[in-house]
Structures are given as C-alpha cells and as structure tokens.
Design a protein around this nucleic acid. Structure first.
Lengths: 255, 255
DNA sequence: CGCAAGATTGAAGTACGTCAATTCCAGTGG
DNA sequence: CCACTGGAATTGACGTACTTCAATCTTGCG
C-alpha cells in the first residue's frame, strides 16, 4: 500500500477529490469510472447557476472556477476559487438549492458525477469515502480567512495574501513544482475577489510589483520571494491545514 | 411520531444541534445526557483558543459566542456568531487544530460533549446523526454571505444585513416570538464584525436609526419594519436555507 | 457616589471610488 | 505581413467614504 505513494503521479493527485490522498489502483479505477462524464466550459461560462438543484457532484479536472453571487447593482463578488482536484456540490442535497453560482474563470474541464454514483463509492471504498468527506470541511477555514482578509487587511495585503494562498494550493495538488503557477485572473476579477474596483486594484498591483516580490504576466504568477511575500501579507499557512492533510495521507498510506 | 412536533417546546429546539429538528423523547434524553457537562463563560472569556485540539464538541446553550482571529496589529475580526443551538468542533478532528478562537460575547452556557459520546450518539439515533451532520454545512452559506457583505456592500447595508440575519436565526431557534431580540454587541464588536472602526460604526448606526427601521438599546434590537430593513439591506434570506430545514423537519417527523 | 466601559461628537487626513481617456495586446481576417 | 478589433491594462484628476486622533458625555454597576 505504501508503494502507491511512489507510484502515483501528478494526474492521480489532480484527480483526487480529497487532495493529497493517495489512491489504490482499485480506487483510482472507481473514481475514473465515476468521473466519466467530463464537460468543457469556456471562460465566463456558468457551470452551475444560483437556484439550481444539481443532480451531480462536480469535480474540477482542469482550469479555474469561481463561486460568485450576482448582486442587485450588477457586482459579482467572488467567494472562492476551485482549482483542479476541488469538488463541490456534495452538500447541495442538504441545502436544497444553490444559493450562488459557479463559473469558469479559465477554460475548464469538469467531471459531473451523479449523486448515486457517489453513494456507490461511499459504500465501496473507505479511502475514497474519507477523501470525499474531507473536502467540504476544508473549504470553511479558507472562507474564514478570506473574510478576515477582505474585511480587515489593507488592500495591498489582500492581493499579496491571495498570491500566497493560491501557489500553496496549486503545489499541494501537483500543479506546479517551482514558484511559477497559473493565475488566470483579470484585474476585474482581482477586484471582485478583494472587494476593490479595477482601477485601484491595478494601482496596488503596481506598488506591489515595485517591491519585486513577484511578477504577473499573461495569466501566470511568478513568486520571486515567497518568504518575503508571506511576511508582507502576514500570511499564516495554518488555515490551509496542509500539514494535517499530509498526516492523513501517511495514515491512509499505512493502512 | 408526528405528535413530537406539537409536543416539543422552545427548550427542545434550543437544545437541538441541527436546529429545527424535532427530537423524540429518547433522542432528547440521549442528547441531554450527552450535554451534561455544561460550563459557564463570562463575557470576553475564550471558550476555545487558536491552536487547541479540543477533545469535546461544543454546543451553545445560552448566550452568544463568536469565532474570531487575533491579527498581528491587535485587531480581532469576528467571523461568525454562535447562538443557542449552534454547535462547533465537529470537524476539528479532521483539521487537527483550531485555526481560530471562540469567545463568549455575552455570558454563555456551553455544553462540552466528549467526542466519543458524539460517536455513540451517531450510532444510536439516525435522527440525531442527521442533525449533527446538517449543522456544519449550514454554516458555510452564512460565511459566504458575510464575505459578500463585508467585501462588497456599503457600510450601512452591512449593519442592516446583520440586523436581518440575526433575528431570523434567533426566531428559527425559538429565542424570540416578536421583533425584539437579544443583540449583545458593543459598537467595537460591530466594528470587528463589519470591518469598520468603532467611530464610523456609530455614525452609520445614527444614520440608520434616523430611518426608523429599528431601535437598539441596552443589548436588545427591536426591528420596527423588517420588510423595510430587508429591502434596504438587499437581504435575501435564501442563504439561511431555513425553508429546506423546515422541509427536512417535516420529513423527519413523518419517518 | 464614583468609577470604568462604552457611546457620542468634532475636525482633519487618507485610502479608495469614480469618471474618463489612452495605450497595450492577443486574436482575426485580409 | 499588416490592419483591424475588442478586451484588458494603464494613467490622470477629482470626489467621497472611511480613518484617525482626541475630547466629552452617558450608562451601568459596586
């Protein structure tokens, strides 16, 4: 079983709902089978709309998606990013209907997994079951940190904070090895995320760029000095709970 | 079984983790037994501190508590309110350790339920099990709405929004029948909640008061015109998912 | 009565919003 | 290869919302 850890490649990780869980071959086959209905979404297309009662659970395979709401004034605040390996909709049954929408931020591949297939998995693989149950609780701490960031941190810190969180999450899921990673956001979308207006976002980006901590160009962010950036953003990676994920990975690996 | 619905009183609701779940006598005895270790907390006392790995699940019986973080600059942003019937800590096992603290906002009674007692309940009562699993997923939509409010709504709306959410939640849990309810927050705490500084919070409160939609005095809020307030706040109660809670209540009652 | 915590008011500074115009750039078609 | 196009980035000037500092005034409570 421990062998799985060395065997698995980026793909296995990326396809893993729980992130950081190592799958046995059987589990992987089970999951691949479940995720057979993969659909493509262009940038700006809604994947799920507010008010829907989706029959499927959604697993992001490729690209970025965002949870957002449409406000009366036309504003579209972004409340979360979903990157490959992130799952959503597990709890929609409980909640009856979506209270927000999810759209593709970059061209996306999303697996639609019927709810009964999920139930089926839950019965068959303890490992996958755990992975599936871990996923939603891990979103909550991130949401809380965003709330703190948006409400209580200076604007330049908000951006810097995002530039710390996303590479860590990308790394955790095997999307990047070095300090460069996909960040397919327009300045508008930065604004929707941080609660700022485009123009001011841009100015803050300028100021930040001046410090030489990172470079942002054509949809990629290169972090030159992660420690410096984390210090500036007052970023404490604790809320991502990646350490405990790794611990659980080890646990699962040895079972 | 349907009879339960008429039998149960305010207390049963208040003691109910899932809120809006009706308990059979057996279940209620089970829960009351589990919640035998009830501790009192004075205003401003920490109930759980960041970094802890609590062995117990916490159920608020009386008073208000708040999730908060301590920022390097001394700021203490509030990320959520826990009112009677709210439960927390169910997922801490998954997450290893607390990434934030919880403190008493008003004098609190909190039940400490050992984790193994919870497991025990999970095995014995399907109804309580459901109630326990519903609770955490219901916090997430609220968190998202707060994120939107703090990041993207005008300041007066932020306050108004809170003044819509809290009475609805209080009502749902049987804490009030009319439009008056406990709101034990200082202006400082309003600030910590909405991302504002005390002084400006106060000025906005003044402006709002001028519209005659509510009165706030000695820890109680009286809403004179809920519809007007909701319109002003652009408040859509959908995210509280109270309708689906009621639906589930009916479902449980008839099983 | 007297203290301390909180509420209130004022005046002045700064960060961010707002409007508007210009430049850049990837993609498209000739 | 260039010209055209629309979306995004950039820059400037100006207005407003929120902060900041500081002082006074209530209110609850021992």
């Amino acid at each position: 079983m421990v062998g799985d850890a060395t065997r698995m490649g980026v793909d296995a990780l990326v396809w893993t709902p729980g992130r950081f869980t190592v799958l046995s071959e059987g589990d992987e086959r089970l999951l691949m089978g479940a995720a057979s209905d993969v659909r493509a979404f262009e940038r700006r297309r809604d994947i799920i709309e507010e008010g829907e009662r989706p029959d499927d659970v959604h697993l992001v395979i490729e690209g970025w998606a965002a949870r957002y709401k449409l406000l009366p004034n036309g504003d579209q605040p972004i409340m979360a990013f979903l990157i490959p390996g992130d799952i959503c909709g597990l709890h929609v049954t409980l909640l009856d209907q979506m209270d927000h929408s999810i759209e593709a931020i970059s061209p996306c591949q999303v697996a639609f997994i019927p709810r009964d297939v999920i139930s089926n998995i839950l019965g068959r693989s303890e490992r996958l079951t755990r992975a599936l149950w871990w996923s939603p609780p891990l979103d909550e701490p991130i949401l809380r940190e965003w709330l703190v960031t948006v409400g209580h941190r200076r604007v330049d810190r908000r951006l810097a904070h995002l530039f710390c969180e996303m590479p860590l999450r990308s790394k955790a899921v095997g999307l990047t090895d070095d300090d460069s990673f996909e960040l397919p956001l327009t300045q508008d979308e930065f604004g929707d995320t941080t609660g700022l207006f485009t123009v001011h976002t841009h100015r803050m980006m300028n100021d930040l760029r001046g410090q030489g901590l990172f470079t942002h160009r054509s949809g990629r962010l290169i972090v030159h000095d992660l420690d410096g950036l984390m210090a500036f953003a007052e970023f404490d990676p604790n809320y991502l709970h990646q350490a405990s994920k790794r611990a659980r990975l080890a646990q699962v690996g040895s079972t």
